[in-house]
Structures are given as C-alpha cells and as structure tokens.
Design a protein around this nucleic acid. Sequence first.
DNA 1: ACCTGAACACCGTTCAAGT
DNA 2: ACCTGAACACCGTTCAAGT
Lengths: 245, 245
Amino acid sequence: MARPRKPLLSTERIVATAAALVDAEGVEAVSTRRLAAELGVSGPSLYNHFRTKDEILEAVADAVSARIDLSMFAEDDPRDWRTALHDWAVSYRAALADHPQVVPLLARGPGRRPAGLRVADAVFGAMVRAGWPPAQATSIGALMRYFVTGSALGSFARGFVDDEAAYDPADYPHLGQAHLLAERQRKVDEGAFETGLAALLDGLAVRYAAQVSQGSGDASGRGTETGAGGMGAGAAGTEAGGTGA
Amino acid sequence: MARPRKPLLSTERIVATAAALVDAEGVEAVSTRRLAAELGVSGPSLYNHFRTKDEILEAVADAVSARIDLSMFAEDDPRDWRTALHDWAVSYRAALADHPQVVPLLARGPGRRPAGLRVADAVFGAMVRAGWPPAQATSIGALMRYFVTGSALGSFARGFVDDEAAYDPADYPHLGQAHLLAERQRKVDEGAFETGLAALLDGLAVRYAAQVSQGSGDASGRGTETGAGGMGAGAAGTEAGGTGA
DNA sequence: ACCTGAACACCGTTCAAGT
DNA sequence: ACCTGAACACCGTTCAAGT
C-alpha cells in the first residue's frame, strides 16, 4: 500500500501524538521511528508533513503556548493592567505546569512559534491601551515572560522527576518522606513564584505612577514619551513581534 | 598502546574541551566520538572518567555557574542586600551571556550541580544576615534565579543565531540591516532585563520595609517570623540547598 | 587503572520506487 | 500527493582484550 486514497497522516494528528508522547515520556522519547510507529506508519512518512523532527517539536511547544489564557487582555475586559498581568502570569505558569516535559523545548529560544507571537501582541496592545509608552509595553511583555518561563524551568523541568527516581522504594521504605520532600519543594517554588510576581507588579506600579505624574499617561495612551524607563522610541507594531513565548 | 603510563585524559581536560566545543558549535555538536577525537582519543575512553555523556554536559554547565561573582554576599562586603542582589543578577546574566550555547543545558533542571548549590547558599546567607526571615530568603534566591535564567533563555538561547542564519548574505546584500535587527533585539532584551530587575528589587524593598516595621528585622536578623510573606517556617540550612542554579 | 576496536541497538534524513 | 523499504552516516554505551 504505497499511497492510500485517504491520507493516513495529518499535521494535527502528528502534533497531537507527539505531544502525548512528550507528556508521557519526555522529549527524549520522541524519535521519528518511535513517533511513526505510534501513528501506525513508517518513519520517513513524517517528512511528507514536516521538514525536520525539530519542526514537530516546535509545533508541540506552540500548542502549549496556545493554551495560555489571554482573555484578560481583550479590549472589553474590565481588569486593570496590573490584575491582567497577574492573571496572565498565573495562567501562563499553569499551562507550563500542566506540561512540564515541554518546558525544556522553550530553551531552544523563542523561535518562530505563532502562538508565542500572539501572546506578545496581546500583552503589548493591552499595556499601551492602559497608558504605558510603547517601548515600556514591549519591555513588560518580555520581562514577565522571563520570570514565568524561568520559574517553570527552575520548578518543574526534570527537577523532581529525577528525585522520585533517585528514591527507589525497594531499598528505601520511607517513601512517604520522598513524597514529603517533593511536596515541600513544590511549596518553596510556589512561594517564590508568588512573592516574585507580587514584587514585580509592585515595582511596575511604582514606575507607572511616576509615568502618569510626569507624562500624560491617560487611558487613551500611545502618546508622549516619558523619560522614566528610558529605552528610546520605537514603532509599536514591530516592537511587539520582537520575541515570542 | 592500550594503557599509557601517564593518563591521556583527566576530567578537567574533558570538561574544558567539551566546554570549548559547546561554545564554538553548540550542545548538539557534542558527541562522544567527536569529543574524543578532539581529545586525541577513542570514543569509549570517556567512560573511564564519566558515566554518561549527560554527566559531562552537567559539568560544563556547572563550570559556567562557577564563574558567577559571589563577592557581594561575603560577610565583610559593604554592599546592602539590594545592591548585592542587583550586582549578582548582572554578573549572573553576564556569565550566561558569555556562554549562550550553555543556556539550553539549564533547561534540564537544577540537577545536582555543586556550583549552583554554592550560589543558593551564598544568597540565602546574605539575605538572612540582612534581616530577611529564612523562608523569605529562600524565596528571594529562587525568584531572582527565575528572572535571570528566564531572561537568558529569552534573550540569547539560539534566538538571533537562527536569525543571522536566516539572512543569507548571498541573496540578501543589505546585511547591514540584519546586524541592525540583531542589535535592536539585543537592546530590547537588555532594556527588559534592566526594567524587570529594578522593578523586582523595588517590590522586594517594599516588602522588606513592611517587615521591619512589623517584626524585628534588624541586621542581626534570623529572629521573629513575620506574617508578611507567608510561606511558613522552615529550617535555615535545608532551605538554602533546595534548588541550584 | 586506562585505553582500544568491535559490536549492539539505535538515531535523523534522503531517495528511488510504488500507486 | 503520500506512503514504503533500503540505505547513509551517524549516535551512546557495553565489553572483552590488552598493558
């Protein structure tokens, strides 16, 4: 059966199966042959739908980014910029926490993931509407992303997975304690995330206040450059697309 | 020549050569055979000094962590906690910027890198001495690490390397513009880092002030638990070692 | 103890061949 | 257009053999 009249594969099915494999066994478990077998197909078939294996993994990462809630940045959403950023960060972290095995894929850099660009665009637009100067709005999107992805990396990227493996219940009967340690670490990470997020938003609020008192930072926004953040001017549209999630 | 009377290899030489290879061509260029060839030796020889290839890469990552300046956390250093954190973050980022190809290795999680643990310990000790409650001191070390590693990831982990490759100077003669774009992105990332770092420290300063006014947060420190951060109590020593860089 | 070559069970990707 | 098997040039790691 060389070519079936109905295609056996689709990009969606490939990505979904790859994502499930990553979630279940980690990025390293994904080989073209293994993935193809899971799809009931031979290895080279994948190359009719993707140019490289890396492209498949990029699509898996993008699918996770696509699950980040962005409703707080909608024009008609009542949340103020600070609450919106907070809720977004929490949703962002939750999306990564749901797929810890995907986090290492983020380490390959922003890449060209479309969902990442959509995120950057949404944040940028909402911040500008709230009265932030464009250059500052760009910075805010980036620095929030830094913090959230960094926390995901530090918290659940292969960290406690290794730990659980290290505590072999065979010769270590107090497996309750291993659970306790993992739970404890989780609490530490969560506390650090919450403290850091609150501090970050407090710090931004200080800068925002300095801005409005000095410039003309009303809600119609987009206008006068204030000196407060000092990144120089920049065109709005291109600024937002600079880096993806 | 089965066994030379003087060993051809040493863990140091292996790590140094691996690090040079990573810096020059990236993590993906490191194969045991390639690395061994670079060392003038056959592939399996490496297994006399390391148990797996991953262990070698961990050592490379640890060598970078070891280059982070920690002098600001020394007991006799005059810098206050806020300045110390700032200078540390800048030095931390600089260490990663010097070895952008190493950044993806951090994505494998904190692991058991000794240099990372030393860093965590230094931050913790200095924060406690400055008057932060132990639980908060732990959070601060973690959240600062989140931000710095996240920024390294977002800024120079294979981001613009790909970009430069995309602009093939053969059919794109305005290579000056490609440089301009890369330079522009670098400025955006730097601005986001500086803004975020300042905001983070401002936010922590607010919490610190709330702490001393409410509890007894003098420089002798270590004492009374305040309710401000709310992570519950925890033994000092074990808290610090929780997560590495 | 420390190196070697041979071998095992894999890889990602290309390509001619089939329909 | 979309799948196949065969093939190429690799992998990480193990192991018996040498000194």
